[in-house]
Amino acid sequence: MADHAITRDAPPRIRSISALQFTAFVVLAAIVIASISQVAPSGERLANAAPRMGRLVARMLPPETDPAFLWRVMERLIETFQIAIAGTVIGIVISLPIAWMSARRITPVAATAFLFKGLVSFFRTVPDLVWALVFVASVGLGAAAGTMTIIVDTIGFCGRFFAEAMEDADKKPQEALEAIGASRFSVLCGAVIPDALPSMVNTALFALEKAVRSSVVLGLVGAGGIGQELKVAFDLFQYRNASTIIIAIFIVVIVMEYLTDRLRAKLA
């Protein structure tokens, strides 16, 4: 009897939902099912693709090891890395003032904060390949377009997270420096940035990691780097060259992730 009373007071196993919630659930389920049936590969298609995939992999093996080709791949990899480094560093430098101008309660001009936030959102929401197409069209084919793409992408990424780190910085040192009569810039440099620095360094390392991955694919649209070599290899059906490039990209990205992980762990 007592057990029954206890069970009666317990919350129900399934929470009752309103008619509106039920309708929303049904609509969402319909969208998911319709999407899968429209664009996901069918079983028959997958079955037909499997032998073709097997033939492609067979044509990719063994990877090309001609020294002249490997040297060219190395040069392109260095260029890719340079695009990532230059773009990230320049992007971070530009992100700092933009983050300051857009951070709530930190910005020196509160009235324009939303403009800077909007700019950062715009940079972030447009995909990097689209930025690459824009810059290839404006500055021409090559590494410069790739670097500009990474700069914009980094501003979109770091601008947001730097601003959040600044907003989350301990308020007490800021109040103490304001009471001293320090300028807003001094409060930023003396209290906000030192406190937000670990988070900002973390963000910068993620940005670098992201930039290395992005700079690899930017070449597909002509924005320099190893991606351009990969596109040529596929266009000319040089699949052994392509597999060498894919392995090289894999190694670079893995090494980069390993190094940034180590750095992050050290800074934590």
Binding site: D170, K172, P173, E175, A176, L177, P194, D195, P198
Partner: peptide, 9 residues
């Protein structure tokens, strides 16, 4: 201040 307000890092 009540809290020292030092920059901890």
């Amino acid at each position: 201040f009540q809290h020292h307000g030092l920059v901890m890092r």
